[in-house]
Design a protein around this nucleic acid. Structure first.
Lengths: 226, 226
DNA sequence: CAGTGGTCTAGACCACGAA
DNA sequence: TCGTGGTCTAGACCACTGG
């Protein structure tokens, strides 16, 4: 026995269904709020809530006097989950291993540079080249990164932030190849991430994934969350 | 002179600011709706609208009787823009070129297989290995893909859909290397995309990007769209 | 000008779940 | 139990903009 879903959810679902099946194609003018009120026998606020959520999801656009219209699909946008490396490893049923390879403190520039090796069942899984701006996160200098990876530490010490990811494929250079135990030129998935808080750069990291089976998974979402 | 923003936008912005700056850390219980009504001197629906949008953005969670709480940052999720290939090329200021390399119609399985070459200023930019399920999109069989890339054609003929992307790095196999004019084993960025409509597989495509400068860019969004 | 959406009010009842 | 959020109503005024 399923509980009765909220009416505005039902209204939204029915309209969304008509859009996704193509019954209401891009450019189609959907009924005005007054008509939907009559159809569902409810108040205007209720249909408005349904339509507002469709706007937030990018499925329709609304113009005063003109009405509400099904949008042309915008450039496809996908939600890319970026799990912590230890989570990526354990998700494969392997045992996670971590090792700090190098630590350089550049006093002049207030920068901490780290190199770390992440492994799955003892096999190299990723090489992390990390830079932390000490002017923003001074406590990083007194943290023992032999014990915990900087990524996990930063996740706890810098809650909300902005970030940009750049994903590319690059051949392993000699140093990377040596560290990861692969051949020079080996195809690696490279993820560059820069993280800001309030517009100020906190940290930048480059992750090298040598395993061709490593995949980043993103799902397309016409109607993401809500 | 800026028009007065809606009150529920102002409420949301002020709360969001307190969360992003850390003034209200994860787990913090934010004022209940009644208190916010008093603070802003407005009706409950208005603060409710602001709080609802914060829920949709993933910044807070709400529990009956307990209250509303700042969420711990979930697994980082980034919005990945996936532009059409011709858009990727022209965005670099290069001239886009397209060529259909191969076309195989497997009558038994109702499948159309295509191989295409996308170029930027005449240089190979991507190899596309495309499979289209004719049972869902029969008109694809009568379409001349010598003139337009299947990706662009499908975008217009299959408006809204679900999709899953898998991004990895792979060495060019002999056939890919020959087509793209690179060396075998060359590190390529590989994007696999499967597309469904109403749960039915429409098309699957593998894109090989040989250029190490090719990057997919994703930006992290605590509060994505609204 | 008038149709439409954007916003807001001042209530209401109900469901959930922590105490 | 009862505080809290979830939902909904039946109005209202205003801003924008297409005809």
């Amino acid at each position: 026995m399923i509980a009765r879903p909220a009416l505005h959810h039902r209204i939204r679902a029915e309209i969304e269904s008509r859009i996704l099946t193509g019954e209401w194609p891009p450019g189609f003018r959907i009924p005005v709020e007054h008509e939907l009120m009559a159809v569902y026998g409810c108040a205007r606020m209720t249909v408005n809530k349904a339509l507002s959520s469709l706007v937030a999801a990018g499925l329709i656009e609304r113009r005063r006097k003109a009405g509400s219209f099904v949008r042309r699909p915008p450039d496809p946008t996908a939600l890319l989950e970026i799990p912590d490396i230890s989570a990526q490893v354990t998700a494969r049923g392997a045992e996670y291993g971590y090792q700090l390879l190098d630590r350089q403190h550049q006093r002049d520039a207030e920068i901490l540079d780290l190199q770390c090796r992440h492994s799955a069942d003892g096999v190299a899984f990723a090489l992390e080249q990390r830079r932390i701006m000490l002017a923003v996160i001074p406590t990083a200098l007194d943290t023992d990164f032999n014990r915990q990876p900087p990524g996990a530490w930063l996740l706890e010490h810098v809650a909300w932030h902005e970030a940009e990811h750049r994903i590319s494929a690059k051949p392993a250079d000699p140093q990377v190849a040596a560290t990861l135990g692969t051949l020079e030129g080996h195809a690696c998935l490279v993820v560059d991430r820069r993280t800001w808080r309030s517009g100020e750069l906190i940290t930048a990291v480059r992750l090298w994934y040598p395993d061709h089976r490593t995949e980043l998974v993103a799902r397309f979402t016409p109607s993401s969350r809500d």
